[in-house]
């Protein structure tokens, strides 16, 4: 704690200190009770959840990150390919016809892959 250098400030400090010394018993008593109420906080145990909250947050973030990285769609899918194909189909002249017979084309596709057709 630094003391003021200037005489003017010293006089102000002295006036203030005198008013501190003149605090009445009621206020001093109240300050004493306040101090003990504050110190009682040291004995109050912190909530368990507040202790574990940071660790739980980190663990949750790690789990989410792992789930995202391990997701089959995130790893195996080639973004854009299916979308381009779909657009070609939709923009084609016979797209309506194809949509009407979607089940048939789907069966042809499956059968070709399995070697049953052709």
């Amino acid at each position: 704690m630094n003391e003021p250098d200037d005489t003017f400030e010293k006089k102000l400090k002295a006036t203030f200190d005198a008013s501190v010394d003149e605090l009445d018993a009621a206020r001093l008593s109240r300050l004493n009770r306040s101090r003990h109420a504050a110190l009682a906080e040291l004995q109050r145990p912190r909530h368990q959840w507040s202790i574990w909250m940071p660790a739980t947050g980190v663990a949750a973030a790690v789990v989410v990150a792992v789930m995202v990285m391990q997701s089959p769609t995130a790893v195996n899918e080639i973004p854009g390919t299916a979308t381009v194909t779909d657009m070609e189909i939709l923009l084609g002249e016979d797209s309506i016809e194809m949509l009407e017979e979607l089940e048939f084309y789907s069966w042809i596709d499956t059968a070709e892959m399995e070697g049953d057709v052709g």
Binding site: L23, L31, S34, A37
Partner: peptide, 27 residues
């Protein structure tokens, strides 16, 4: 605590409020 109370009293110009503020700060 006593200087803090006087400083708070000058700040808010209310004894009871100043006592409450000092207690809150302590806690």
């Amino acid at each position: 605590e006593r200087r803090a109370l006087r400083i708070a009293e000058i700040g808010v110009r209310d004894r009871d409020e100043a006592l409450d503020l000092v207690q809150d700060a302590m806690i």
